[in-house]
């Protein structure tokens, strides 16, 4: 309960001037992250700069060879990294496009239905991720649900084989896996949106599109931003989906990284991961600049 009491402290009238007491709330998580994340990552960083004969040995000579390799190796790591980012962007955009109206639908339902619908959105998560991805092979495959249905209704006589084992199926499954996050995040911001503003806009003669773009969307941007983080970043680390439904064209950066780890190349694997993390952080910084959340909420 210590964390909760830290939360409470901020509204105490005895708030100190120099360091807001509220900042103590950061302490537990920051400590956990430093001890259980930063320190281990420093070890990994050391490995990525060490050339060691022995597995996981810290003795060896300093080298940047692993990083050089990320940028050379026929350019495959960079190319696949860029490809991974592009696919993640497309999947995230698709999640937002499909998920926003869905969240709107839930936020518009009556109170008692909202909780039921939200429960139903989260439910699929609790079934094994692996098994759910597998299930898609039985939906999109040559004798899958879709092809069988098309054949049954006489639409096609040959199975549509482009449904599975390519970038398309990969993105479909990504959207399937991550859309609940989008829906939850956007729902949360829709739900606390100030609705009187919407009515005011309509009263003043704004069209529904104008109302949405000027009133609703800006108010839900934090939800949109949160869902981008929830969807975009985890997709960059996806390993299973490309393996199971991506076929030969859907290879992503984590597949290459995992292959290296299974060859006991921890140093090189770490180098790939750090290059990737740098890319992602730069993207996130850019995103933060363009969607300056703080300014939106100062008022």
């Amino acid at each position: 309960m210590r964390a909760a009491s830290n939360v409470a402290v901020h509204i105490s009238p005895r708030v100190g001037r120099a360091i807001p007491r509220l900042l103590w709330g950061l302490l537990p998580l920051a400590t956990i992250d430093v001890v259980l994340f930063v320190i281990p990552m420093v070890f990994m960083a050391l490995f990525s700069f060490r050339f060691s004969e022995e597995l996981l040995g810290l003795v060896g000579r300093w080298t940047v060879a692993h990083y050089v390799k990320v940028f050379t190796s026929e350019g495959i790591y960079l190319r696949i990294l860029v490809k991974t980012i592009v696919i993640a962007v497309v999947a995230t955009a698709a999640c937002l496009l499909v998920g926003y109206p869905f969240a709107y639908f839930i936020a518009n339902a009556s109170r008692r239905w909202q909780s039921v619908l939200l429960t139903l959105v989260i439910m699929p998560f609790w079934t094994s991720y692996l098994l759910r991805v597998y299930a898609w092979t039985a939906i999109l495959g040559d004798r899958g649900l879709i092809n069988e249905a098309l054949r049954f209704f006489g639409v096609t006589d040959q199975p549509l084989s482009f449904l599975l084992f390519n970038v398309f199926s990969e993105i479909v499954v990504f959207v399937y896996l991550y859309i609940p996050y989008t829906v939850l995040a956007i729902y949360a911001s829709l739900e606390k949106m100030d609705r009187s503003l919407v009515l005011a806009a309509m009263d003043l003669g704004a069209t529904p599109v104008q109302t949405f773009l000027r009133i609703v969307l800006p108010q839900t941007l934090p939800g949109v931003y949160a869902s981008i983080v929830f969807v975009f970043i985890p997709i960059l680390g996806e390993y299973v989906t490309p393996t199971l439904v991506g076929g030969m064209s859907g290879v992503l950066i984590t597949n290459l990284l995992v292959n290296q780890i299974h060859a006991l190349e921890f140093g090189f694997g770490a180098a790939i991961a750090f290059v990737m993390a740098t890319f992602v952080l730069m993207l996130l910084l850019g995103l933060r600049r363009s969607v300056d959340l703080e300014r939106l909420y100062v008022a």
């Binding site: 281990p40 985890p234 680390g237 390993y239 780890i261 991961a273 990737m276 952080l281």
Partner: peptide, 14 residues
């Protein structure tokens, strides 16, 4: 950004 880092690093490495 620092608090987001653990999501950015692939699980196998963490």
């Amino acid at each position: 950004l620092f608090l987001l880092l653990p999501i950015v690093i692939p699980g196998i490495l963490t």
